[in-house]
Design a protein around this nucleic acid. Sequence first.
RNA 1: CGGGGUGUGGCGAAGUUUGGUAUCGCGCUUGGUUCGGUACCAAGAGGCCUCGGGUUCGAACCCCGACACUCCGACCA
Length: 481
Amino acid sequence: MADMNKMVNEITSMDEDFAKWYTDICKKAQLIEYTSVKGCMVIRPYGYAIWENIQRILDGMFKETGHENVCMPMFIPESLLQKEKDHVEGFAPEVAWVTYGGSEKLEERLCVRPTSETLFCEHFKNILQSYRDLPFKYNQWVSVVRWEKTTRPFLRSREFLWQEGHTLHATREEAVEETLQMLDVYARFCSECLAIPVVKGRKTESDKFAGAEATYAIEALMHDGKALQAGTSHFFGDGFCRAFDIQFSDKDNKRQFPFQTSWGMTTRLIGAIIMTHGDDNGLVLPPAVAPIQAVIVPVQQKKEGVLDKAFELCDTLKKAGIRAKVDDTDNSPGWKFAEYEMKGVPVRIEIGPRDIQNNSCVVVTRLNREKNFVAISDIVETVEQKLAEVRDQMYQKALENRENHTYNCSSLEEIVSTLEEKGDGFVKAYWCGDEACEDAVKEKTGVGSRCIDGNVTPTDDKVCVCCGKKAEHLVYWGKAY
RNA sequence: CGGGGUGUGGCGAAGUUUGGUAUCGCGCUUGGUUCGGUACCAAGAGGCCUCGGGUUCGAACCCCGACACUCCGACCA
């Protein structure tokens, strides 16, 4: 039997210290490296490749739903940022400023975009004339800067990569529909491609985006029972358009304010993948975004024919569209097994002289270490099947974890005792809609509102978990990242 | 931004109490033997002890300050 202790030594166990486990994985799986600027990290090739896969798939979904990519500048003049009152109040505390260009002191300082609503507004105002121009359905893949106080790899960095969609519509209904459609796209992406089950819902007033009329979010439950907001979709009404005086001529040649949305997902998704699927041996990557889907480990690779066979196998897989790689380094097979396990590669293929003699190879899945002896002629089919299976099993596992850590509670005392007894998780409890109660719940139980369950309209007998008055909403509460 | 913890070759640490010019393991380089769960032997390379001041004949060690990482809160993708 292998020395299991040695294998797990590299990474702090989740139960011992979840936060340390997380940063261990980020560093040891070579996803990131710190830099000399606090909160700014290098996303290394292996981490960036995950992001590239996320980008590729999401970008395809955006295009399918009729969006085009654009690129806004990174600087926003102070006066532009200040046009929408709630927006500037929300973002001002974490904005980074540029006051010099070379040796020239700027007449007006420029903010490094924390988000690009104002830039899009300025642009929309310039290009919009007629209802025939609408809708504008734009997206951009850029980085933004928010000067956070506390930083953590992927979860909260001062500069982060994201996509931000910005759309403009002639009618309120169409904009609302867009907002919800993109929320669905996000939810579908998380569940199908990342194997992360999410809760969809609207944010409470106190928690919505600065300047939005309504904010919708998808929330995922991490392995430690804390919630992570994985994506947001905002409906702005015509608030920004009024603030920026964006108008168009309708069919009757009357001037109208259009309606606007924005939506975003970030490199935080990589953090979500780590904390949803990872285990004490390291990363477990969803096949759809894994940079390497199948790693081929030759055994006794110096024996004649072994490496040739390994590369031949690799080519076959690549031709079938599977991201495959042969590790022909001098490291021992055992070392390679552990290494790719830590890096979360979904499928490992072992091939040595014995296999070659039998015209077979060994296929091992990362998630459960299940071993299969497979005929070389069946390799493509088998790997494809394993990748699909793994995605389903990962989703099921995450779903079970979430269900085991979702609690229906009807009193503050019950929330406190349940969390104490069963650990952190989602608390489902009714709420009257009063902000004072929302604050009180957070104050007394430690969990804040994550989102409102839009599928449930409380019946007359349901009462607020805090004040006992008639409930307006069923709310998911939780501790958040 | 408040409260803790940490900072010593690439990584992880010992040394700091009781100042005297740096030690160990892993990794790295070269050569050889290995190879089905992180192999082994031999020979090497690599450190202004985070940075800046101070005390001292002398500072990794004592004093002051800065910065970074990290954890727990408050705020946030």
